[in-house]
Design a protein around this nucleic acid. Sequence first.
DNA 1: CCACCTCCTTGCCATTTCCGCAAGAGCCCT
DNA 2: AGGGCTCTTGCGGAAATGGCAAGGAGGTGG
Lengths: 181, 181
Amino acid sequence: MDLSRVGQRLRSYRHERNWTLDELAARAQMSPSTLSRLEAGKRQASLELLVPLTRQLGIRVEDLLPDEQADPRIRRSEIRRHGQVMVPLSAENAPIHTYKITYPPISEAPEQKTHDGYEWLFVISGRLRLHLGDQHFTLGRGEAAEFDTRTPHAVWAVGKRAAQVLSIFNDDGERMHTRAV
Amino acid sequence: MDLSRVGQRLRSYRHERNWTLDELAARAQMSPSTLSRLEAGKRQASLELLVPLTRQLGIRVEDLLPDEQADPRIRRSEIRRHGQVMVPLSAENAPIHTYKITYPPISEAPEQKTHDGYEWLFVISGRLRLHLGDQHFTLGRGEAAEFDTRTPHAVWAVGKRAAQVLSIFNDDGERMHTRAV
DNA sequence: CCACCTCCTTGCCATTTCCGCAAGAGCCCT
DNA sequence: AGGGCTCTTGCGGAAATGGCAAGGAGGTGG
């Protein structure tokens, strides 16, 4: 993010209004020299200075920052729970949740769980055991499955290695491809 | 504007994401102690610090400021031109422009001008002379007029006193009350 | 050409703020 | 008790701050 032009933008907003340095400085309750240096980029742009100025100019702080495509990269922390490592691959507020989940191999089936939602998963590596109600499945690398999570289900890795799984699910009980977009 | 809670908001956004101080500080390339003090309000909130943080958190700088009803007061400088004093009474980006204009009395009619737009005016005090194409009018206190500014027109004060006029106009050639809102 | 005005910039410098480091406080879990 | 995790804070050299006042730059009028 380029902050070097903040002062210039500030100045151009001031000029648009035909305000002098002294006038804006007085309205924003700071000395003209401070404002001059701020506009010239010779002072740090702190909120203490910027907020009164943007208020007087009728603009938002964001208006002083360069337009920027929102960063599309997902930057969330992995979540560790019951030995699983879940790496979120979608935004927190996204309608569909995507995770890469690493299941450690365990010898006994965990308890089956039930909740609203629909899940799709793909086995990247390892062998995955899926209990879905009374039915039992084993999925190898490259295999995929989808199921309604309102059915009691349990998922874990079998064998020696952990299983890496790409998991996509949503919160309500509908199939994902029928969701309104 | 209350800036004292900026740090608290920052912290709550971080907590929403279950990020530790060290994690966010590393992502935003600052030391944990700096971030700690910033969140505690013991450091000035400069853009240098805030912008990387808000980028990492996926929020805007404005999200750290208290919601505030936009100040409805118009705060613009008067414009002086040809001896006229124009006090803007509406925002710069408003669809309709409103001014209180003080016309100094002059003895000769200024040149008639033509431009796109529609104008409505009201005489607050003084006597106003209006030339509109071939037609000549004099307006006293309390009188109003409206005309298409594509017609050649000239406005000035006559008599000894300046005339104060409330003037409302828009930029295009339509009547104001027919504008789409 | 000089005086004057307005607008803005900048050197000065006492004072404040910054900020990384490392110690340690508080908390939870075993 | 001990260890791990998270966060806070004292310290001190370094950097930034900001009001004042001098002065530069540009325009206008005598």
